[in-house]
Design a protein around this nucleic acid. Sequence first.
DNA 1: ACCTCCATTTCGGGA
DNA 2: TCCCGAAGTGGAGGT
Lengths: 270, 270
Amino acid sequence: MNGEPHVEAARSSIQPVMRSEVFHDPATDVVLDVISSGVAAADVITIHATCEVEYEGRAAGYLGLGDRIILCKPDGTLLVHRPTGNDPVNWQPPGTTITTETEDGNPVVIGRRANPDEVVRVVLHTVALCTRVDADDTAPLELSGTEADMHQYILEHPDEIEPGLRVLEHERDTPYGSIDVYANDSEGRPVVIEVKRRQATLTHVDQLNRYMTQYRTSNPNARGILVAPAASEGVKRALEEAELEFVGLSEFAAQNTNVSSTTINDFTPD
Amino acid sequence: MNGEPHVEAARSSIQPVMRSEVFHDPATDVVLDVISSGVAAADVITIHATCEVEYEGRAAGYLGLGDRIILCKPDGTLLVHRPTGNDPVNWQPPGTTITTETEDGNPVVIGRRANPDEVVRVVLHTVALCTRVDADDTAPLELSGTEADMHQYILEHPDEIEPGLRVLEHERDTPYGSIDVYANDSEGRPVVIEVKRRQATLTHVDQLNRYMTQYRTSNPNARGILVAPAASEGVKRALEEAELEFVGLSEFAAQNTNVSSTTINDFTPD
DNA sequence: ACCTCCATTTCGGGA
DNA sequence: TCCCGAAGTGGAGGT
């Protein structure tokens, strides 16, 4: 049964199914053929193999023999996954050119890209499984609870930040960074707001402080507010020292994204 | 051939091979059994399926029908990959509990974790392929060209930063952030060095500036140097305004990690 | 557990 | 293309 493909074609035009081929314990030439023909046909290729991985580019790496799952996507993505961990142990982002060669009779998968110039080389010592499927996926990911949603909420409910706040501008780019929200307070003072969807950190203070330091040279009375669901004591101290303010929007704390009766839950498709 | 497993056991104790089972176009109960038994056996499970994905946790998401590859790892990692993109469209990091259920006769994969409380639910409408393999991988990843390597290089070659520089300390933690390198220049002035292994950005300037602002209250003549392979004009301007300096270490520019005769190339295993 | 920072970060948007 | 900042960032290391 070695190398014998099990083909399952689409069974109907109404509900098309992924066309898939599986090669069990395939010989080297079968692996090479599946990869090259699969890449040419824009299929997704998965390989279960004991392999070795070399990487050279922005950094350089070597990974000795082990059992991994290799994924080759039609957009050039190359992923090498270990049996543990969220992130691939080696990878190559979209835009990579995937080719093959042999080394000591073993099939080798090569992912090469320019800018940055990087190569990942996967030497397949024992291939347990090699598959190619024709995958079609155009559904948009609908995601809510992002920072963009929080911006929208603030634009529509400025009083939640501070009574009398009037929003004047959203996402203004400047040479010293971009401002999330520009507003005036009830006394007409300029207010710059930096929004974070999760616990505020020092880098967030930095970001606001960088802009405010510049802005205050021409607007000494300008206020800077960091808006986030929460902030550590260190962050609050850093804010005070920079004469900046913190406003906690606990509605946006984690595990509370499905608030009803607000606009936060409105989906914002790609 | 539906649901019939193709089993390939290890063939020798000398060179063990991944034990693998493949189910082609499996029925719902087969999918459910493969997942639950595979999870129990600490196997890696891959599913090629047309599916729907729901996510709720720090944010909330919905992904309509499409062809994807689902990966379940024995450490609880759950990955849903589209045919494009480096990153999974939905995922659950290690530590997740993977369970199954059915919905309208379709198998459903559920990944649930606490802290943060998050759930990913994958509704499998048509499963083309379902595999489980017993993967073993203990090889350490050897990686060079990281920021740690750059630190080491600077510690051993301080003159590359500036003639006469004497390094006094490495990685000092403070309430206002950690310093990469603390040194004295040829005139005895304190020098704080922030090291970046790639093109410097404004946030890197922030990081150095945050600390220097504090440090200079007690050491007004202290110098702050950002060391990186390169920096944009905006970064250099921001540095000047904060009275900080930039030193370009072009040896560490991308695509130049394999410099010979230096220590940068020494592997630093996990 | 919290906080900070690196990452071969990747990804998307704007100039 | 570069530059900048978000991400359901993940992961490591220290306190």
